[in-house]
Design a binder for these strands. Structure first.
Lengths: 235, 235
DNA sequence: CCATGTGAAGCCTTTCACAGCT
DNA sequence: AGCTGTGAAAGGCTTCACATGG
Protein backbone atom coordinates (compact mmCIF):
# COMPACT_ATOMS: atom_id res chain seq x y z
CA UNK A 1 0.00 0.00 0.00
CA UNK A 2 1.21 3.53 -0.75
CA UNK A 3 2.33 5.57 2.24
CA UNK A 4 0.38 8.80 2.69
CA UNK A 5 1.53 11.57 4.99
CA UNK A 6 -0.73 12.82 7.71
CA UNK A 7 -1.31 16.52 7.87
CA UNK A 8 -3.24 18.93 10.04
CA UNK A 9 -6.87 19.01 8.97
CA UNK A 10 -7.35 22.28 7.09
CA UNK A 11 -11.06 22.66 7.78
CA UNK A 12 -13.04 25.40 6.13
CA UNK A 13 -15.81 25.04 8.68
CA UNK A 14 -15.15 24.89 12.40
CA UNK A 15 -16.51 21.41 12.73
CA UNK A 16 -16.72 18.43 10.41
CA UNK A 17 -19.48 16.04 11.33
CA UNK A 18 -19.34 12.32 12.03
CA UNK A 19 -21.70 11.70 9.16
CA UNK A 20 -19.43 13.47 6.72
CA UNK A 21 -16.41 11.52 7.99
CA UNK A 22 -18.31 8.26 7.48
CA UNK A 23 -18.94 9.18 3.86
CA UNK A 24 -15.34 10.32 3.33
CA UNK A 25 -14.22 6.84 4.37
CA UNK A 26 -16.66 5.35 1.87
CA UNK A 27 -15.35 7.65 -0.87
CA UNK A 28 -11.79 6.60 -0.10
CA UNK A 29 -12.72 2.93 -0.30
CA UNK A 30 -14.50 3.46 -3.60
CA UNK A 31 -11.57 5.42 -5.03
CA UNK A 32 -9.11 2.70 -4.04
CA UNK A 33 -11.05 0.30 -6.21
CA UNK A 34 -11.29 2.78 -9.06
CA UNK A 35 -7.57 3.55 -8.95
CA UNK A 36 -6.74 -0.15 -9.12
CA UNK A 37 -9.09 -0.43 -12.08
CA UNK A 38 -7.14 2.37 -13.75
CA UNK A 39 -9.80 5.08 -13.73
CA UNK A 40 -8.37 8.59 -14.15
CA UNK A 41 -11.39 10.84 -13.68
CA UNK A 42 -14.62 10.68 -11.70
CA UNK A 43 -17.57 13.02 -11.20
CA UNK A 44 -19.55 13.61 -8.02
CA UNK A 45 -22.55 12.13 -9.86
CA UNK A 46 -20.72 8.87 -10.52
CA UNK A 47 -19.50 8.61 -6.93
CA UNK A 48 -22.99 9.31 -5.67
CA UNK A 49 -24.63 6.75 -7.95
CA UNK A 50 -22.18 4.06 -6.86
CA UNK A 51 -22.81 4.73 -3.18
CA UNK A 52 -26.49 5.61 -3.24
CA UNK A 53 -25.89 9.27 -2.36
CA UNK A 54 -26.86 12.53 -4.11
CA UNK A 55 -24.08 14.20 -6.08
CA UNK A 56 -24.64 17.44 -4.18
CA UNK A 57 -23.93 15.60 -0.95
CA UNK A 58 -20.63 14.34 -2.34
CA UNK A 59 -19.61 17.84 -3.43
CA UNK A 60 -20.64 19.36 -0.10
CA UNK A 61 -18.61 16.77 1.82
CA UNK A 62 -15.52 17.35 -0.28
CA UNK A 63 -15.91 21.12 -0.13
CA UNK A 64 -15.36 21.06 3.63
CA UNK A 65 -11.79 19.96 2.98
CA UNK A 66 -10.76 22.11 0.05
CA UNK A 67 -11.26 22.37 -3.70
CA UNK A 68 -10.23 19.10 -5.25
CA UNK A 69 -12.17 19.12 -8.50
CA UNK A 70 -12.01 20.85 -11.85
CA UNK A 71 -15.24 22.54 -13.00
CA UNK A 72 -16.57 21.01 -16.14
CA UNK A 73 -14.29 18.00 -15.70
CA UNK A 74 -14.57 16.25 -12.35
CA UNK A 75 -12.04 14.87 -9.90
CA UNK A 76 -8.71 13.20 -10.62
CA UNK A 77 -9.02 9.73 -9.07
CA UNK A 78 -5.41 9.42 -7.82
CA UNK A 79 -5.31 13.01 -6.58
CA UNK A 80 -8.63 12.76 -4.72
CA UNK A 81 -7.68 9.39 -3.24
CA UNK A 82 -4.41 10.81 -2.05
CA UNK A 83 -6.05 13.89 -0.54
CA UNK A 84 -8.74 11.87 1.23
CA UNK A 85 -6.16 9.42 2.56
CA UNK A 86 -3.97 12.16 3.96
CA UNK A 87 -6.96 13.91 5.54
CA UNK A 88 -8.11 10.70 7.19
CA UNK A 89 -4.61 9.56 8.16
CA UNK A 90 -3.70 9.78 11.85
CA UNK A 91 -0.65 11.65 13.20
CA UNK A 92 0.73 8.28 14.23
CA UNK A 93 -0.67 4.82 13.63
CA UNK A 94 -3.31 4.18 16.31
CA UNK A 95 -2.56 1.25 18.60
CA UNK A 96 -5.74 -0.57 19.55
CA UNK A 97 -6.53 -3.03 22.33
CA UNK A 98 -9.42 -5.46 22.14
CA UNK A 99 -11.17 -6.13 25.44
CA UNK A 100 -13.22 -9.34 25.58
CA UNK A 101 -12.10 -12.35 23.58
CA UNK A 102 -15.49 -13.94 22.97
CA UNK A 103 -16.79 -14.98 19.58
CA UNK A 104 -17.24 -11.42 18.37
CA UNK A 105 -13.89 -10.27 19.69
CA UNK A 106 -12.08 -13.13 18.02
CA UNK A 107 -13.90 -12.45 14.76
CA UNK A 108 -12.87 -8.80 14.84
CA UNK A 109 -9.22 -9.74 15.44
CA UNK A 110 -9.09 -11.52 12.11
CA UNK A 111 -11.53 -9.30 10.27
CA UNK A 112 -10.21 -8.00 6.97
CA UNK A 113 -11.82 -4.61 7.63
CA UNK A 114 -9.22 -4.12 10.35
CA UNK A 115 -6.20 -4.20 8.08
CA UNK A 116 -5.25 -0.59 7.59
CA UNK A 117 -2.33 1.80 7.52
CA UNK A 118 -4.23 4.03 9.95
CA UNK A 119 -4.37 1.65 12.92
CA UNK A 120 -3.43 -1.78 14.18
CA UNK A 121 -4.74 -4.06 16.88
CA UNK A 122 -1.79 -4.78 19.17
CA UNK A 123 -3.25 -6.92 21.96
CA UNK A 124 -6.34 -8.61 23.34
CA UNK A 125 -7.54 -8.81 26.95
CA UNK A 126 -9.78 -11.31 28.72
CA UNK A 127 -10.60 -12.51 32.23
CA UNK A 128 -10.52 -16.20 31.21
CA UNK A 129 -7.40 -17.85 32.64
CA UNK A 130 -7.54 -20.44 29.86
CA UNK A 131 -7.08 -17.70 27.25
CA UNK A 132 -4.48 -15.54 28.99
CA UNK A 133 -0.99 -16.03 27.59
CA UNK A 134 -2.23 -17.84 24.49
CA UNK A 135 -2.38 -16.37 21.01
CA UNK A 136 -5.54 -15.84 18.97
CA UNK A 137 -5.29 -15.28 15.24
CA UNK A 138 -1.78 -14.06 15.95
CA UNK A 139 -2.60 -11.73 18.85
CA UNK A 140 -1.53 -12.40 22.40
CA UNK A 141 -4.18 -12.42 25.10
CA UNK A 142 -3.31 -10.47 28.27
CA UNK A 143 -4.95 -10.62 31.66
CA UNK A 144 -7.50 -8.00 32.70
CA UNK A 145 -5.52 -7.76 35.93
CA UNK A 146 -3.03 -4.97 35.41
CA UNK A 147 -4.67 -3.92 32.14
CA UNK A 148 -3.90 -0.25 32.63
CA UNK A 149 -0.17 -1.02 32.99
CA UNK A 150 -0.21 -3.25 29.90
CA UNK A 151 -1.98 -0.48 28.02
CA UNK A 152 0.78 1.96 28.96
CA UNK A 153 3.55 -0.49 28.09
CA UNK A 154 2.09 -1.30 24.67
CA UNK A 155 1.22 2.32 23.87
CA UNK A 156 -2.47 1.57 23.39
CA UNK A 157 -4.76 4.60 23.14
CA UNK A 158 -7.94 3.10 21.68
CA UNK A 159 -10.08 0.17 22.86
CA UNK A 160 -12.63 -2.04 21.20
CA UNK A 161 -15.04 -3.43 23.81
CA UNK A 162 -16.56 -6.84 23.08
CA UNK A 163 -17.20 -8.00 26.63
CA UNK A 164 -20.60 -9.25 27.83
CA UNK A 165 -22.87 -6.37 28.86
CA UNK A 166 -22.55 -7.06 32.57
CA UNK A 167 -18.73 -6.88 32.46
CA UNK A 168 -18.24 -3.87 30.18
CA UNK A 169 -18.39 -0.96 32.61
CA UNK A 170 -15.97 -2.48 35.12
CA UNK A 171 -13.60 -3.52 32.34
CA UNK A 172 -13.63 0.03 31.00
CA UNK A 173 -13.11 1.50 34.47
CA UNK A 174 -10.04 -0.70 34.96
CA UNK A 175 -8.64 0.07 31.52
CA UNK A 176 -9.09 3.84 31.79
CA UNK A 177 -7.47 4.07 35.22
CA UNK A 178 -4.08 5.04 33.81
CA UNK A 179 -5.49 7.85 31.65
CA UNK A 180 -3.94 6.56 28.42
CA UNK A 181 -7.15 5.70 26.58
CA UNK A 182 -8.59 8.38 24.33
CA UNK A 183 -11.35 6.54 22.51
CA UNK A 184 -13.56 3.46 22.72
CA UNK A 185 -15.44 1.56 20.04
CA UNK A 186 -18.12 -0.15 22.10
CA UNK A 187 -19.82 -3.25 20.72
CA UNK A 188 -21.44 -4.22 24.00
CA UNK A 189 -25.09 -3.33 24.45
CA UNK A 190 -24.68 -0.91 27.33
CA UNK A 191 -24.21 2.82 27.66
CA UNK A 192 -20.71 3.31 29.06
CA UNK A 193 -19.79 6.01 31.54
CA UNK A 194 -16.34 7.46 30.84
CA UNK A 195 -14.33 10.47 32.05
CA UNK A 196 -14.64 13.79 30.24
CA UNK A 197 -12.49 13.86 27.13
CA UNK A 198 -12.75 10.17 26.27
CA UNK A 199 -14.69 9.58 23.04
CA UNK A 200 -17.09 6.64 22.74
CA UNK A 201 -18.67 5.31 19.56
CA UNK A 202 -21.37 2.69 20.12
CA UNK A 203 -21.97 -0.05 17.55
CA UNK A 204 -25.06 -1.92 18.66
CA UNK A 205 -25.62 -4.86 16.35
CA UNK A 206 -28.93 -6.03 17.75
CA UNK A 207 -30.31 -2.49 17.68
CA UNK A 208 -29.37 -2.28 14.00
CA UNK A 209 -31.20 -5.53 13.33
CA UNK A 210 -34.29 -4.38 15.25
CA UNK A 211 -34.34 -1.10 13.31
CA UNK A 212 -34.41 -3.07 10.06
CA UNK A 213 -37.13 -5.44 11.33
CA UNK A 214 -39.32 -2.57 12.49
CA UNK A 215 -39.15 -0.98 9.05
CA UNK A 216 -40.20 -4.32 7.58
CA UNK A 217 -43.08 -4.66 10.03
CA UNK A 218 -44.20 -1.14 9.20
CA UNK A 219 -43.99 -1.87 5.46
CA UNK A 220 -46.08 -5.02 5.92
CA UNK A 221 -48.69 -3.11 7.85
CA UNK A 222 -48.87 -0.36 5.27
CA UNK A 223 -49.34 -2.96 2.56
CA UNK A 224 -52.13 -4.66 4.50
CA UNK A 225 -53.84 -1.38 5.33
CA UNK A 226 -53.72 -0.13 1.79
CA UNK A 227 -55.09 -3.49 0.60
CA UNK A 228 -57.95 -3.10 3.09
CA UNK A 229 -57.08 -6.35 4.88
CA UNK A 230 -56.57 -4.83 8.29
CA UNK A 231 -57.28 -1.57 10.05
CA UNK A 232 -54.79 0.59 11.82
CA UNK A 233 -56.86 1.31 14.93
CA UNK A 234 -55.51 1.57 18.45
CA UNK A 235 -56.36 -1.61 20.29
CA UNK B 1 -39.26 -15.03 28.71
CA UNK B 2 -42.80 -13.67 28.85
CA UNK B 3 -44.76 -13.91 25.61
CA UNK B 4 -45.91 -10.54 24.30
CA UNK B 5 -48.49 -10.19 21.60
CA UNK B 6 -47.74 -8.26 18.47
CA UNK B 7 -50.20 -5.60 17.48
CA UNK B 8 -50.62 -3.09 14.72
CA UNK B 9 -48.50 -0.04 15.40
CA UNK B 10 -50.90 2.70 16.51
CA UNK B 11 -48.79 5.62 15.41
CA UNK B 12 -49.78 9.15 16.25
CA UNK B 13 -47.54 10.53 13.55
CA UNK B 14 -47.46 9.13 10.06
CA UNK B 15 -43.88 8.02 10.30
CA UNK B 16 -41.70 6.85 13.15
CA UNK B 17 -38.03 7.31 12.48
CA UNK B 18 -35.19 4.82 12.56
CA UNK B 19 -33.49 6.87 15.25
CA UNK B 20 -36.52 6.70 17.49
CA UNK B 21 -36.82 2.93 16.96
CA UNK B 22 -33.18 2.52 17.93
CA UNK B 23 -33.83 4.31 21.19
CA UNK B 24 -37.04 2.36 21.84
CA UNK B 25 -34.98 -0.84 21.64
CA UNK B 26 -32.53 0.65 24.15
CA UNK B 27 -35.39 1.61 26.46
CA UNK B 28 -36.77 -1.92 26.29
CA UNK B 29 -33.39 -3.40 27.14
CA UNK B 30 -33.00 -1.04 30.10
CA UNK B 31 -36.50 -1.80 31.37
CA UNK B 32 -35.88 -5.54 31.20
CA UNK B 33 -33.03 -5.07 33.62
CA UNK B 34 -35.07 -2.78 35.84
CA UNK B 35 -38.00 -5.19 35.94
CA UNK B 36 -35.73 -8.05 36.95
CA UNK B 37 -34.30 -5.82 39.66
CA UNK B 38 -37.84 -5.28 40.90
CA UNK B 39 -38.24 -1.57 40.07
CA UNK B 40 -41.87 -0.46 39.88
CA UNK B 41 -41.64 3.12 38.67
CA UNK B 42 -39.26 5.11 36.46
CA UNK B 43 -39.12 8.69 35.21
CA UNK B 44 -38.01 9.93 31.82
CA UNK B 45 -35.16 11.69 33.61
CA UNK B 46 -33.88 8.43 35.09
CA UNK B 47 -34.10 6.61 31.76
CA UNK B 48 -32.30 9.46 30.06
CA UNK B 49 -29.53 9.62 32.65
CA UNK B 50 -28.91 5.88 32.38
CA UNK B 51 -28.66 6.01 28.60
CA UNK B 52 -26.99 9.39 28.12
CA UNK B 53 -30.08 10.99 26.55
CA UNK B 54 -32.14 14.06 27.49
CA UNK B 55 -35.40 13.36 29.34
CA UNK B 56 -37.32 15.38 26.77
CA UNK B 57 -36.04 13.04 24.07
CA UNK B 58 -37.31 10.04 26.01
CA UNK B 59 -40.75 11.60 26.45
CA UNK B 60 -40.93 12.63 22.79
CA UNK B 61 -40.04 9.11 21.64
CA UNK B 62 -42.67 7.52 23.87
CA UNK B 63 -45.28 10.09 22.92
CA UNK B 64 -45.23 8.85 19.30
CA UNK B 65 -46.70 5.57 20.51
CA UNK B 66 -49.28 6.68 23.04
CA UNK B 67 -49.56 7.99 26.58
CA UNK B 68 -47.87 5.50 28.85
CA UNK B 69 -46.97 7.67 31.85
CA UNK B 70 -48.73 9.30 34.76
CA UNK B 71 -48.12 13.02 35.20
CA UNK B 72 -46.44 13.80 38.47
CA UNK B 73 -45.52 10.13 38.89
CA UNK B 74 -43.64 8.59 35.96
CA UNK B 75 -43.93 5.32 34.08
CA UNK B 76 -44.84 1.89 35.46
CA UNK B 77 -41.83 -0.30 34.63
CA UNK B 78 -43.75 -3.53 33.84
CA UNK B 79 -46.46 -1.68 31.90
CA UNK B 80 -43.97 0.34 29.81
CA UNK B 81 -41.84 -2.74 29.17
CA UNK B 82 -44.90 -4.63 28.02
CA UNK B 83 -46.05 -1.81 25.76
CA UNK B 84 -42.62 -1.33 24.20
CA UNK B 85 -42.26 -5.07 23.65
CA UNK B 86 -45.60 -5.39 21.93
CA UNK B 87 -44.89 -2.36 19.75
CA UNK B 88 -41.54 -3.77 18.69
CA UNK B 89 -42.79 -7.35 18.35
CA UNK B 90 -43.16 -8.68 14.79
CA UNK B 91 -46.39 -10.14 13.39
CA UNK B 92 -44.58 -13.47 13.21
CA UNK B 93 -41.10 -14.37 14.36
CA UNK B 94 -38.68 -13.28 11.65
CA UNK B 95 -36.67 -16.12 10.10
CA UNK B 96 -33.16 -14.98 9.25
CA UNK B 97 -30.49 -16.45 6.97
CA UNK B 98 -26.82 -15.66 7.38
CA UNK B 99 -24.87 -15.41 4.13
CA UNK B 100 -21.11 -15.82 4.45
CA UNK B 101 -19.70 -18.08 7.15
CA UNK B 102 -16.40 -16.35 7.73
CA UNK B 103 -15.12 -15.29 11.11
CA UNK B 104 -17.66 -12.53 11.49
CA UNK B 105 -20.55 -14.68 10.31
CA UNK B 106 -19.67 -17.45 12.69
CA UNK B 107 -19.35 -14.95 15.56
CA UNK B 108 -22.80 -13.55 14.82
CA UNK B 109 -24.34 -17.03 14.79
CA UNK B 110 -23.41 -17.56 18.41
CA UNK B 111 -23.71 -13.94 19.51
CA UNK B 112 -25.89 -13.48 22.57
CA UNK B 113 -27.40 -10.32 21.06
CA UNK B 114 -29.15 -12.59 18.58
CA UNK B 115 -31.24 -14.48 21.09
CA UNK B 116 -34.66 -12.91 20.92
CA UNK B 117 -38.35 -13.68 20.76
CA UNK B 118 -38.59 -11.36 17.77
CA UNK B 119 -36.40 -13.33 15.37
CA UNK B 120 -34.22 -16.39 14.93
CA UNK B 121 -31.39 -17.32 12.64
CA UNK B 122 -32.47 -20.49 10.85
CA UNK B 123 -29.64 -21.24 8.44
CA UNK B 124 -26.24 -20.20 7.15
CA UNK B 125 -24.97 -20.13 3.56
CA UNK B 126 -21.47 -20.30 2.13
CA UNK B 127 -19.68 -21.12 -1.11
CA UNK B 128 -17.00 -23.21 0.65
CA UNK B 129 -17.58 -26.90 -0.09
CA UNK B 130 -15.78 -27.81 3.13
CA UNK B 131 -18.42 -25.96 5.14
CA UNK B 132 -21.55 -26.99 3.25
CA UNK B 133 -23.54 -29.67 5.06
CA UNK B 134 -21.67 -29.19 8.32
CA UNK B 135 -23.05 -27.47 11.39
CA UNK B 136 -21.65 -24.30 12.95
CA UNK B 137 -22.60 -23.38 16.52
CA UNK B 138 -25.70 -25.48 15.90
CA UNK B 139 -26.67 -24.02 12.53
CA UNK B 140 -26.49 -25.98 9.31
CA UNK B 141 -24.52 -24.54 6.42
CA UNK B 142 -26.26 -24.66 3.04
CA UNK B 143 -24.76 -24.18 -0.41
CA UNK B 144 -25.06 -20.86 -2.21
CA UNK B 145 -26.17 -22.88 -5.20
CA UNK B 146 -29.94 -23.00 -5.01
CA UNK B 147 -30.02 -20.41 -2.23
CA UNK B 148 -33.29 -18.89 -3.39
CA UNK B 149 -35.02 -22.29 -3.20
CA UNK B 150 -33.59 -22.97 0.26
CA UNK B 151 -34.78 -19.54 1.34
CA UNK B 152 -38.30 -20.38 0.20
CA UNK B 153 -38.27 -23.82 1.83
CA UNK B 154 -37.06 -22.48 5.16
CA UNK B 155 -39.35 -19.45 5.13
CA UNK B 156 -36.49 -16.98 5.37
CA UNK B 157 -37.38 -13.33 4.78
CA UNK B 158 -34.36 -11.50 6.19
CA UNK B 159 -30.65 -11.89 5.43
CA UNK B 160 -27.51 -10.93 7.26
CA UNK B 161 -24.65 -10.46 4.79
CA UNK B 162 -21.13 -11.22 6.04
CA UNK B 163 -19.49 -12.15 2.76
CA UNK B 164 -16.26 -10.56 1.52
CA UNK B 165 -16.93 -7.28 -0.30
CA UNK B 166 -16.24 -8.72 -3.73
CA UNK B 167 -18.79 -11.51 -3.29
CA UNK B 168 -21.65 -9.59 -1.65
CA UNK B 169 -23.54 -8.22 -4.63
CA UNK B 170 -23.67 -11.50 -6.52
CA UNK B 171 -24.66 -13.39 -3.37
CA UNK B 172 -27.48 -10.92 -2.81
CA UNK B 173 -28.58 -11.15 -6.42
CA UNK B 174 -28.82 -14.94 -6.16
CA UNK B 175 -30.62 -14.82 -2.84
CA UNK B 176 -33.20 -12.25 -3.92
CA UNK B 177 -34.07 -14.05 -7.15
CA UNK B 178 -37.11 -15.77 -5.64
CA UNK B 179 -38.57 -12.54 -4.26
CA UNK B 180 -38.89 -13.84 -0.70
CA UNK B 181 -36.37 -11.54 0.97
CA UNK B 182 -37.75 -8.33 2.47
CA UNK B 183 -34.76 -6.98 4.34
CA UNK B 184 -30.98 -7.18 4.56
CA UNK B 185 -28.59 -6.35 7.39
CA UNK B 186 -25.38 -5.75 5.46
CA UNK B 187 -22.07 -6.06 7.28
CA UNK B 188 -19.97 -6.09 4.13
CA UNK B 189 -18.28 -2.83 3.14
CA UNK B 190 -20.13 -2.27 -0.12
CA UNK B 191 -23.25 -0.42 -1.17
CA UNK B 192 -25.72 -3.10 -2.27
CA UNK B 193 -28.11 -2.67 -5.17
CA UNK B 194 -31.49 -4.29 -4.44
CA UNK B 195 -34.93 -4.25 -6.05
CA UNK B 196 -37.46 -1.63 -5.01
CA UNK B 197 -39.19 -2.60 -1.78
CA UNK B 198 -36.27 -4.46 -0.21
CA UNK B 199 -34.93 -2.66 2.86
CA UNK B 200 -31.18 -2.56 3.53
CA UNK B 201 -29.47 -1.50 6.74
CA UNK B 202 -25.70 -1.14 6.49
CA UNK B 203 -23.48 -1.81 9.50
CA UNK B 204 -19.97 -0.81 8.50
CA UNK B 205 -17.59 -1.68 11.30
CA UNK B 206 -14.46 -0.15 9.85
CA UNK B 207 -16.30 3.08 9.05
CA UNK B 208 -17.42 3.25 12.68
CA UNK B 209 -13.83 2.82 13.81
CA UNK B 210 -12.58 5.49 11.40
CA UNK B 211 -15.25 7.91 12.61
CA UNK B 212 -14.00 7.46 16.16
CA UNK B 213 -10.36 7.84 15.15
CA UNK B 214 -11.04 11.02 13.21
CA UNK B 215 -12.70 12.57 16.26
CA UNK B 216 -9.61 11.65 18.27
CA UNK B 217 -7.29 13.15 15.67
CA UNK B 218 -9.36 16.32 15.65
CA UNK B 219 -9.30 16.49 19.46
CA UNK B 220 -5.52 16.09 19.44
CA UNK B 221 -5.13 18.84 16.91
CA UNK B 222 -7.39 21.19 18.84
CA UNK B 223 -5.36 20.54 21.97
CA UNK B 224 -2.10 21.25 20.16
CA UNK B 225 -3.46 24.38 18.53
CA UNK B 226 -4.84 25.80 21.73
CA UNK B 227 -1.51 25.05 23.42
CA UNK B 228 0.25 26.98 20.66
CA UNK B 229 2.39 23.99 19.63
CA UNK B 230 1.21 23.83 16.04
CA UNK B 231 -0.72 25.98 13.64
CA UNK B 232 -3.79 25.00 11.70
CA UNK B 233 -2.77 26.46 8.38
CA UNK B 234 -3.50 24.97 5.01
CA UNK B 235 -0.34 23.36 3.76
C1' DC C 1 -21.71 23.01 -22.56
C1' DC C 2 -20.19 20.48 -18.36
C1' DA C 3 -19.36 19.67 -13.52
C1' DT C 4 -17.78 21.96 -9.41
C1' DG C 5 -18.42 24.80 -5.23
C1' DT C 6 -21.68 27.03 -2.33
C1' DG C 7 -25.24 30.19 -0.34
C1' DA C 8 -29.99 29.51 0.62
C1' DA C 9 -34.01 26.67 1.16
C1' DG C 10 -36.10 22.76 2.87
C1' DC C 11 -36.41 19.02 5.79
C1' DC C 12 -35.54 16.42 9.86
C1' DT C 13 -34.18 15.88 14.80
C1' DT C 14 -33.50 17.55 19.27
C1' DT C 15 -34.31 20.63 22.95
C1' DC C 16 -36.97 24.01 25.33
C1' DA C 17 -40.55 25.45 28.11
C1' DC C 18 -44.89 25.21 29.93
C1' DA C 19 -49.82 23.66 30.22
C1' DG C 20 -52.07 19.91 32.28
C1' DC C 21 -52.84 16.13 35.28
C1' DT C 22 -51.71 13.45 39.72
C1' DA D 1 -44.92 20.10 44.13
C1' DG D 2 -43.64 16.70 40.51
C1' DC D 3 -43.47 14.65 35.98
C1' DT D 4 -45.70 13.88 31.64
C1' DG D 5 -47.04 15.27 26.93
C1' DT D 6 -46.42 18.52 23.35
C1' DG D 7 -46.41 22.79 20.52
C1' DA D 8 -42.82 25.84 19.28
C1' DA D 9 -37.93 27.10 18.88
C1' DA D 10 -33.45 25.83 17.90
C1' DG D 11 -30.12 23.26 15.75
C1' DG D 12 -28.27 20.12 12.23
C1' DC D 13 -28.19 17.82 7.77
C1' DT D 14 -29.47 17.39 2.98
C1' DT D 15 -30.94 19.12 -1.31
C1' DC D 16 -31.63 22.74 -4.52
C1' DA D 17 -30.22 25.81 -7.85
C1' DC D 18 -27.11 28.68 -9.88
C1' DA D 19 -22.85 31.45 -10.36
C1' DT D 20 -18.30 30.22 -11.57
C1' DG D 21 -14.63 28.51 -14.14
C1' DG D 22 -12.72 25.13 -17.45
Amino acid sequence: MIERTARPIPLKKNEITDRTVGRLVAYRRLLQGLEEAGAALISSKMIGDMLGIKSSQVRKDLSYLGEFGKRGVGYSVPRLLNDLSSILAPFARWRIGLVGLGRLGEALLGHSAFRSDDYEIVAAFDVDGAKIGRSFAGWKCYSMTGISETIRELGISVLMITTPAAASQSAVDAALAGGHIKGILNFSPVSLTVPQGVEVNDVDISVELEKLLFRLKFNDQQRKVSAGLETNMVQ
